[in-house]
């Protein structure tokens, strides 16, 4: 009951409901975790921006009572970079799907990470392009089916957390729409850090990915997450064979390198003193 009221505090009631997500979609669970994490921050909501690209997950800002920006496909991080530099004190949260973040927006993703731009990224990863009807995405696992991979995906898939780690993010973590508590904690922790942070929220798409890959019941998607995502320290001890079918979750990176905004504000100060 208490948790419900936390979430409802931040929804744009009477404005944009019902939402567009399918029954059984995991996106609402992630949005709930996101809102509880924001609430825990205790920040003025006028000083929060939620920015997204295009896709199912990118409809999140529409429903939220903050400064919200629903941009073009893949470009959310570039828009967010502008907002953050104009408003350095603002908590700028970027919500993207897997196709948005590491497909069409892959270049923006690696460069925002390289710059250590002070943006708080939450990637809803459902391994598919859901909004357009289930086409293969850069995170569709090899061998799995999609409407543009009817015979099974022959491509390799991106590991979003590996990508964020190797390109320089300050904080990288993964949880799932089943592991709600961890997800909320990781998002909250990322909000408290400077620099570029990525929380990958694995979610299920019963409508497209599920239907094509024997997980069409929403519960089956949740059970898959429950049974196959295990904490990183345990996953590390698995045999190579086991690692093929199980997935690590938890915190992968937690460092405090100076973020871009801090550096730029220092630069302004030193240039002005030099004048």
């Amino acid at each position: 009951m208490i948790e419900q009221s936390v979430v409802h505090k931040y929804l744009r009631k009477n404005k944009k409901f019902p939402h567009i997500w399918c029954p059984g979609c995991g996106h609402g669970v992630i949005m709930g975790s996101l809102l509880r994490a924001i609430d825990k921050m205790g920040v003025d909501r006028n000083n929060v921006a939620v920015i997204s690209g295009i896709g199912c997950s990118s409809r999140t800002p529409t429903y939220l009572d903050f400064n919200t920006l629903h941009t073009t496909h893949g470009r959310a991080l570039a828009f967010a970079t502008g907002v953050k530099l104009a408003r350095p004190d603002m908590l700028v949260i970027v919500v993207m799907g897997d196709g948005d973040a590491v497909g069409i927006g892959g270049n923006h993703f690696i460069h925002a990470a390289r710059r250590n731009m002070d943006l708080k990224v939450v990637v809803y990863n459902n391994n598919i392009y859901g909004m357009t009807g289930g086409q293969a995405s850069p995170t569709t696992p090899s061998g799995k089916k999609a409407t543009t991979a009817r015979y099974g995906n022959i491509e390799r898939s991106f590991d979003i957390c590996d990508l964020a780690r190797s390109t320089g993010a300050n904080y990288v973590a993964r949880a799932t729409s089943y592991h709600v508590k961890q997800l909320e904690n990781y998002i909250y922790k990322s909000f408290n850090k400077k620099g570029f942070t990525v929380v990958e929220a694995v979610t299920h798409c019963p409508t497209t990915y599920g239907r094509l890959n024997s997980l069409k019941e929403p519960v089956a998607g949740m059970e898959f997450q429950k049974n196959n995502f295990i904490m990183k320290n345990l996953w590390d001890k698995l045999s190579d064979e086991e690692k093929q079918v199980k997935f690590p979750m938890g915190e992968f990176v937690d460092v405090d390198k100076e973020g871009f905004v801090t550096k730029y504000l220092n630069l302004i100060e030193s240039v002005r003193q030099g004048d």
């Binding site: 470009r75 502008g82 603002m90 002005r272």
Partner: peptide, 24 residues
């Protein structure tokens, strides 16, 4: 006191200035 950033491409440059403009 202004901000300059060299973006990764022109798609991002245009996106960033829209963000900056929305930021005031």
């Amino acid at each position: 006191g202004g901000k300059f950033i060299q973006m990764e491409d022109e798609l991002a440059s245009m996106a960033a200035i829209i963000g900056g403009s929305l930021g005031g």
